[in-house]
Structure formats: C-alpha cells, structure tokens
Design a protein around this nucleic acid. Structure first.
Lengths: 205, 205
DNA sequence: TAGATTGTTAATCGATTAACAATC
DNA sequence: TAGATTGTTAATCGATTAACAATC
C-alpha cells in the first residue's frame, strides 16, 4: 500500500516523540498526548497509526516502546545507515557534527571535497577524501544515501556523478533543483526557501 | 484568497528559477521550461500562475523579469528583511555564512548566545549579543523572524521567549516540535527527519 | 493560416475530518 | 457499569489533473 509523504513525515515525528517519552520513563500514551507533542490533531494520529498495524487499548492507549518499535519496523528503519557527505564547507562541517549528536543510527562514514587543503583532513572525526574517489567509494561500500553541501554551481554535476555511481537518495542542501532520474529520491532542505516561506506567512496572509 | 502551502513553495521555486534565467540573459520562457527547471508538471505551473495574476502570451510564453516581479509582489517579498539568529554553534555559524552568500535581501542582523566566550564576538561579520538582551533587541528593532539553532534542550524555552517579545515566524533547526500560539508560523527544517525520510524512500517503497 | 501555448473550467483523486461502533 | 478511548468506515474538502476554448 502506498503511503503519502506527509504521513511518513508524521510517523517519523511520532517515532521521535515516543522515543523521548520512553527516555522520560513513560510506558503508556494516549493519542491526545502524542498529538499535542507532535502538533497534529489526535484523530489524524489514530488514522496514521492504522497504517502501521499496532493496536492500542481504550484503557491504556498505546504502549510507548512497542509502538515506537512498530513504527520503526514499518518504516524499515535500519539499525544503522551509512551515509556520505559531499562538500566540506562551513555548512558541511556543521552537519558532520550535528548528525553525530542527534542520531547514532545514521552515521556519516566519509566526507568528500575537491579542495586539496581539506582532503586527508579529519573534521568532527570524519575523514575527508578527494572528490575524485567518491565513485569508487560508493560502489565498494554500497552507499545508498548522500548529503550534498557543495556550492550551488557544482551541485548538478556532483549529483549526476553520485547517481551514476549508484546513489538512490540525496539530501540536497543547495538551492538548485537537481535533475535526476525519477527513481532517485531527493529531499530538498533549502534554508532560503524555508526563510522566504516564513517571511511570506508573517507578512502576507 | 487562501493559498496552499505547497503552492507557496512552488511559487518561491519559480521565482528563483526565473531569477536565474534573467541572470542568464533570457527574456522569455514557456511553462514547459519553467516546469522542467522546477521539477513540476507544466500544467501545474500554469495553474499556480493563475493565482499571481500575470498573463503570458501563447506566442512568447512569459516575460522572465515581469513574471519574477509579479510573483515577488504576490508573495509580498520585501526589498529587505531583517532576521535574528539564536544559537551560535557550528550550525548557527554556518547559517550566518550561508545566508549572506545566498540572498542579499534577507539579512541576519544579529546573533545571540548564552556562552560568554561567544558574546561580543563577530562571526561571518555578524555581531553576537548575550541571549538576555534578545527581548529588548526584538522590540526595539521590530524583528519579526528568528532562526533557532540552539541545542534541543533549550529550544522550547528560547521559542517561548521570542514569541513573548513579538516574533511572528521561526525557522526551527532543532528536532523539537515547538509549542507556540497558532498565529506564530513555524518552519521546521529538521535535518534528521529529512535524512530519515530519504532512508525510508530508498529502503522501503 | 496552422500550430503551439496559455488560461480556465470541470473531473478526478486522495488526504483529512467527522461520525460512531467496538472496546476496555 | 459508565466513561473515555481506540479503530474504522463514510463524508468532506481541497489539491492536482485533464480537457479544451481562447489566443497569438
């Protein structure tokens, strides 16, 4: 069954909130509370949870850890994912750091750059290789996902090279709309677009 | 008339592509081409453009600069927007840099942090103030939009303080779902969520 | 003109919401 | 039990797609 992208978004949010509730020591939660924490209406929470096939009880709501695991299974969340990052500028280095703090299951295993001053250096404990070696690295290590933080002008060229080497999903931090085959999944995290959107909703209607 | 958030997203993308076309020296563009560059179907482009009230011609398509201006007007894109950033960590500093490179119309005018080693320092030519002065700064300078790049544990407290001082829109880089009044617009740029989504679409269906 | 493109209305599709029976 | 909550079906709402007349 095909699930809408928005639903996937929300499931990931639920999973994270459940994880926090578990850390806080709570064992059960009602759809109300999960809804409040996530910022969505409670009936939408219940509707979304229909997809993952976990049943709560009217008496106690949902078991926090069981539901979290159930969502993780549904999303096929692997125990560990290896990701590469291309473009070790300010933003790239910040992301190298941020990822390690946030999620131990997703690890950036290598960085790439064309600048010889950065190659062979270690940033936030990630080794930086020359960009020319990225194709081999992807193939030899079976990497599926890449983060692109290169300058806008180089984004398309890099993306094409990554896809050619077998990359199936890209987190794109550049403002460029990447032209890739339909089967490659692109997540655009365009900060400027985000800012412009906020400006629109603050000024206009 | 109320416009869907997705439509706003796309209009912002069109605007950016038009700007690039103008830079490249093109004067006219057909919906086909704009669609290809943006990654949306051409009929959706035309449908979206109905909203902004600009008329192209069957013979020459759209005038690039006129359409760009028309979208900008529709989105109430101001000539300059002043934004503040709270949390001068690795990510915060990277964004201070990135914003200046990308969009001269949106400028970060001040940064704030609680760390005394960062206060009174200048990063990427932005001055850093102590977080205690943020409320006054917002009121005195009539700031509407803030970027939050503090650690997750501090995000909600900071957000509440900002909203209390009159902030109306927030770009939230933390993984925390902020609890704010409904009239405050929040744009969540959760990198981990982005990564998890890519992993889902790459692994699962 | 002929052919391609625009602008707009109508049709479709799908996500969200509402309603409510089942459950504890 | 009574009351609250879950799970699910049906209704609504709105966005996208399709179709096509108008235009250059």
């Amino acid at each position: 069954m095909k699930i809408a992208e928005n639903t996937i978004n929300r499931l990931i949010v639920y999973k994270k909130e459940l994880n926090r509730l578990a850390t806080d020591g709570l064992s059960n939660v009602y759809s109300h509370k999960l809804a409040h924490l996530s910022g969505f209406p409670s009936h939408l929470v219940r509707r979304d949870l229909m997809n993952v096939g976990y049943n709560g009880s009217p008496a106690h709501g949902y078991n926090v850890t069981e539901l979290e695991k159930c969502i993780a299974d549904f999303l096929c969340t692997p125990e560990s994912v290896r990701v590469i990052l291309v473009g070790v500028g300010n933003l790239g280095r910040a992301i190298l750091d941020y990822c390690q703090q946030q999620n131990p299951k997703i690890s950036i295993v290598a960085a790439f750059d064309k600048d010889k001053n950065k190659v062979n250096k270690v940033y936030h404990s990630i080794y930086t290789f020359h960009i020319d070696s990225v194709k081999n690295y992807i193939k030899e290590n079976n990497i599926d996902v890449a983060i692109i933080t290169v300058p806008a002008a180089e984004a398309q060229e890099i993306a094409s090279a990554l896809v050619e080497s077998g990359i199936k999903g890209i987190v794109n931090f550049t403002p460029v709309r990447l032209q890739v085959p339909a089967e490659v999944y692109i997540e655009n995290l365009d900060m400027m677009l985000g800012l412009e959107k906020v400006v629109y909703f603050v000024n206009g209607d």
